[in-house]
């Protein structure tokens, strides 16, 4: 390779390294933000759980239409992915999970959150009930509200769906994410408990869990348990979707951070080996020149 070409390649590799380094830094900040937001929503989830556990003691919960098990019907799967790529295997793992379900012959329709999921649903010819893209990193209630509406409408309207499940990337730690499938409807208190414990890294700033005091108090319920459940269950659906979104955001950013770190390291490595090559080529050129000159001098002496 000519000297000039190697030099250009070194320059472009260094530039790529700078870009990936910047992306790494940005992802690191975004990841911490996502974790902090998940932490912010804890009081809400704890209070909702408290109300639910109190109501479930009375037995009313199992008779509510949104908590009753349905035997027949297909599933509604909510797929949560990111909009953008360059994030390692976060999205492909979700898609693989859904593909496995397809291969196993499960019948289901989908609701997609994130562009990667929407694209996959198009490729796989799945019935899409709703699609949401461009969900900002600061997930708001308004975003979740619309999603929960689609889910609840579909579930309430007809008995075509036996179950609503959400598939998302569970955030375990910065280096570890896991595609997870959770049931949203019919409502199962155990599932909520799991989700509440959700976005909690094994170690670090947000790892300590907050345990709600388990007290038995005789509540007055106004106007009645069914009316409270009518309001509370949709709220819980929102919470579960919200947490799935947060988890997948945190997973996306941390996976991207790791992927970008690897890319930065690799670009440094490549720059190093290219520089070596460049110096070798330069030295070879100089040696050739010197040889030519001395050769010429020898020829003139004669």
């Amino acid at each position: 390779m000519a000297l000039k070409q190697i030099k250009n390649k070194i320059i472009s590799t260094k530039k790529t390294g700078k870009v990936t380094k910047a992306m790494e830094a940005v992802s690191a900040v975004k990841m911490r933000k996502s974790q902090a937001r998940a932490f912010d929503s804890r009081p809400y989830v704890h209070a909702a759980m408290r109300i639910l556990s109190r109501l479930s003691q009375s037995g009313d919960i199992t008779t509510h239409s949104l908590a009753q098990k349905r035997d027949a019907g297909k599933k509604l799967v909510v797929m949560v992915t990111s909009d953008k790529g360059l994030a390692g295997s976060v999205n492909s793992a979700i898609i693989k999970t859904v593909e496995t379900m397809l291969r196993n012959g499960e019948e289901f329709d989908v609701m997609t959150i994130g562009r990667k999921a929407t694209e996959f649903a198009g490729r796989a010819n799945l019935t899409v009930l709703g699609q949401f893209t461009n969900v900002s990193d600061d997930v708001t209630v308004a975003d979740v509200y619309n999603m929960a509406e689609v889910v609840l409408d579909a579930y309430k309207k007809a008995e075509t769906y036996s179950k609503v499940e959400v598939v998302y990337q569970n955030f375990i730690s910065t280096f570890e994410q896991e595609p997870t499938k959770r049931q949203i409807l019919p409502l199962d208190p155990a599932e909520i408990h799991y989700i509440m414990q959700g976005i909690k890294p094994k170690v670090g700033k947000f790892s300590e869990s907050v345990v709600a005091a388990d007290t038995v108090i005789n509540y007055e319920i106004e106007p009645n348990a069914a009316a409270v459940l009518d309001v509370l269950i949709p709220q819980l659906v929102q919470i579960m979707l919200f947490h799935a979104l947060l988890e997948s955001k945190a997973s996306e950013h941390s996976a991207r951070m790791v992927a970008m770190k690897n890319a930065t390291d690799k670009s440094k490595e490549v720059t190093k080996s290219l520089t070596l090559k460049y110096n070798k080529a330069r030295q070879a050129a100089i040696t050739a020149e010197v040889a030519e000159i001395t050769g010429g001098m020898e020829a003139m002496k004669k």
């Binding site: 109190r54 109501l55 108090i217 509540y219 007055e220 319920i221 106004e222 106007p223 009316a227 409270v228």
Partner: peptide, 18 residues
């Protein structure tokens, strides 16, 4: 509240409402 507005003061009885 669904049954009308209510004002809650300290030491209210345990209550769940919509």
């Amino acid at each position: 509240g669904t049954e009308g507005e209510m004002t809650i003061l300290a030491d209210h009885t345990a209550l769940i409402s919509v």
